[in-house]
Design a protein around this nucleic acid. Structure first.
Lengths: 226, 226
DNA sequence: AATGTGCCCTGACACAAATCAAGGGAATCC
DNA sequence: GGATTCCCTTGATTTGTGTCAGGGCACATT
């Protein structure tokens, strides 16, 4: 499970490889801290590693030549990204909120991998992602703007929300354009839909990036969760 | 790569397990012939096997409670279906055109699988599917009806089309409703779009199920292939 | 302070696709 | 052989979302 992320107008990034090594975390694989705004990999880069997200938020995007972009996913703690298909990556991966990731060589997935436990965990993540993407098909193809935005907020609340009594607050690491490109909408529609939820007193905005869910049940209903 | 398939109003199917065993095909795994209209598995069934499609066409569908359906994929020869996530299947799988499949126990994917060659092939299929599904996100989220239908026909022509000089004929195993649910459109829009392509002399219909592509370049252009 | 820039919101309008409605052809059933 | 049903097509109309345009706020720069 995995929330895709829309592509932002990334100019030249701070430093694509300003990645500081940290103490090894688990399974004696190296963990890395990656700063917000950094690029983990670009489309076309050789797919040499697989990343398990420990903390932070990343965004995977793909672009068509005509300029249309699709945010494939937002990767949250617990997600695995960078699954190789062929030699190269087919998405861009950028850091929206500085993160820590565990890095595995791509061979960690292979048949004769040294660490069977890790191999199995990565495989499971890949299979689970297939299932999550199938869900996302429904989202993109069959849901209204309101249902899309509500579903999106429900998932975020569930995964990175912090409860305050009845309320849940979410810190949106992504911009409106990212959300729009993730949900297959325009910025304007996302904005209008958020306003609509606000007017219905289902959510309120503390700032543009901080959503407070006032009525989780109503939000779930708007999401028409199956 | 893998063409998702929309769910049809499947009444009770002929016989879900009218599956005849055939001679083993490759790697001494059993091959099965499955008749058109049969169900390979249903949502909720225990995911015990993985299937490699040798011949024929299958359809994977998922349904929301409110009745909205999504064709997740059409599986064509060369595709692998039935990847497990958790204990059970999360889609329905039906045979649109009688098929032969190689059946593997789900453990064939696991770390210590007996047949490393098969394990690797299945893994590769899973990773490739993740990539194909990412492409499909663009399709669903960002393409117009014309681009969707054209792209769909381009893929089918490429994978199951039979060339006749400049032309390519495709036998559509799926109904309009399947195509619509696959592309996130309505039946009417699919029909109108096909008419539009017909009027433009890019395709012609021999019957409702048999498309002849008269002008592959024009079709590719309409698909705005990247 | 003044100016510029990025991001978000809102309004007016246009348009693509959904919806509603109807008809026809082919296959199936009795 | 006639009726029924399923599937596809086409037309008229509606509607949700995109597009175009403008304005405001927060923050950085000078």
């Amino acid at each position: 499970m995995y929330v895709t992320l829309a592509h932002a107008e990334t100019a030249v990034l701070p430093d694509p490889h300003a990645i500081s090594r940290n103490a090894a975390s688990n399974l004696n694989r190296p963990a890395r801290r990656i700063a917000m705004g950094a690029s983990v990999y670009r489309e076309g880069d050789e797919a040499t590693h697989i990343y398990e997200v420990k903390t932070g938020i990343l965004r995977l995007t793909r672009v068509l030549m005509n300029g249309r972009r699709q945010v494939i996913a937002f990767a949250l703690p617990g997600d695995v990204i960078g699954f190789p298909n062929g030699k190269n990556h087919h998405t861009d991966c950028d850091v929206l909120e500085s993160c820590e990731v565990t890095v595995h060589p791509r061979a960690a997935l292979d048949a004769g991998a040294r660490d069977a436990e890790t191999q199995q965990r990565l495989l499971k993540a890949a299979l689970s992602e297939i299932s999550a993407m199938q869900d996302h098909f429904m989202m993109l193809a069959r849901k209204s703007a309101l249902e899309k935005v509500a579903s999106f907020l429900v998932v975020l609340a569930d995964r990175i929300g912090t409860p305050h009594g009845n309320h849940i607050s979410i810190d949106l690491a992504m911009k409106r354009a990212d959300i729009a490109d993730f949900l297959g909408l325009t910025i304007e529609t996302v904005s209008r839909t958020i306003t609509q939820l606000r007017t219905a007193a289902i959510i309120t905005l503390q700032s543009a990036q901080t959503v407070i869910i006032l009525d989780p049940e109503a939000l779930a209903e708007a999401a028409e969760t199956d």
